[in-house]
């Protein structure tokens, strides 16, 4: 109980004092997760849309891969990325290991199947007649796809929110490929693990609360997008 109240107090204190180290950690968390999410969306939404519209060959196989990917333990992804980016691995010359780039790579791999898989489901739920109607009104193929995506937007935003939640709170992969290096690859989740390990529970809890608040605010902002309509 003591730790919880102290954690709350410390969280407030950290936020209010504008702690520079905390700010750095929060910023990096957002940068890494933001970049990973953007990349996952960039690749995952079109793939999910194409699958949802039934425009892919090997649809069943790709779908199975996506669903399997959604259940992949992040640590396994981390290990895989580690071996790829290690100096003795195939992409060692990039020198990405223990940098934010490696963390982004791992998070993209975790987020991508979530975005693509859930987008596919959302697009499949759209009235198939809508595509015909859009084309009848003069839509090009791309406009047709875009129209369906927009109709599926609640599901697409949900896919994005789910992927965001999965990677902002993920620790196993980023710990492995980022190394939790202070000032370089330390993000909120790895900082929480570090402080738990060293018995600094109040600080760990404070960071956890900050993470929770941040996730809450960002999810709120993303969900707000679902409501936006033109007037």
């Amino acid at each position: 109980m003591d730790d919880i109240t102290r954690g709350l107090a410390q969280a407030l204190e950290l936020i209010l004092s504008g702690d520079a180290a905390l700010f750095e950690i929060v910023l990096l968390s957002l940068q890494v997760t933001g970049a990973a999410l953007a990349l996952a969306m960039l690749a995952g939404i079109p793939l999910g849309a194409a699958l949802g519209l039934g425009r892919m060959r090997a649809q069943g196989l790709v779908t199975i891969f996506l669903y399997t990917g959604m259940g992949l333990p992040p640590v396994v992804v981390g290990l895989f990325v580690y071996l790829m980016l290690s100096r003795s691995g195939p992409f060692g010359s990039l020198a990405w290991l223990f940098t934010p780039s490696a963390m982004i790579v791992a998070q993209v791999i975790i987020a991508f199947p979530v975005v693509a898989g859930l987008t596919m489901t959302a697009v499949q739920a759209v009235d198939p007649q809508l595509r015909l109607q859009a084309r009848a009104l003069g839509a090009t193929r791309i406009q047709e796809m875009w129209t369906v995506l927009q109709e599926a937007r609640i599901g697409v935003v949900a896919a994005t929110v789910a992927a965001f939640g999965a990677i902002i709170s993920e620790v196993g992969a980023v710990m492995l490929v980022g190394g939790n290096i202070e000032g370089k690859t330390r993000v909120l989740t790895t900082a929480i693990v570090l402080n738990t390990r060293t018995g600094d529970f109040a600080l760990a809890l404070a960071l956890g609360m900050i993470l929770l608040t941040l996730t809450f605010l960002i999810n709120g902002a993303m969900l707000q997008l679902q409501r936006v309509r033109d007037g």
């Binding site: 990096l28 940068q31 890494v32 970049a35 953007a38 990349l39 940098t99 780039s101 982004i104």
Partner: peptide, 16 residues
Amino acid sequence: GVSILGCAAPVSQPTA
């Protein structure tokens, strides 16, 4: 927004 934020990440790493 997230892309720009994301692009800032690799830039800010000293190892780059």
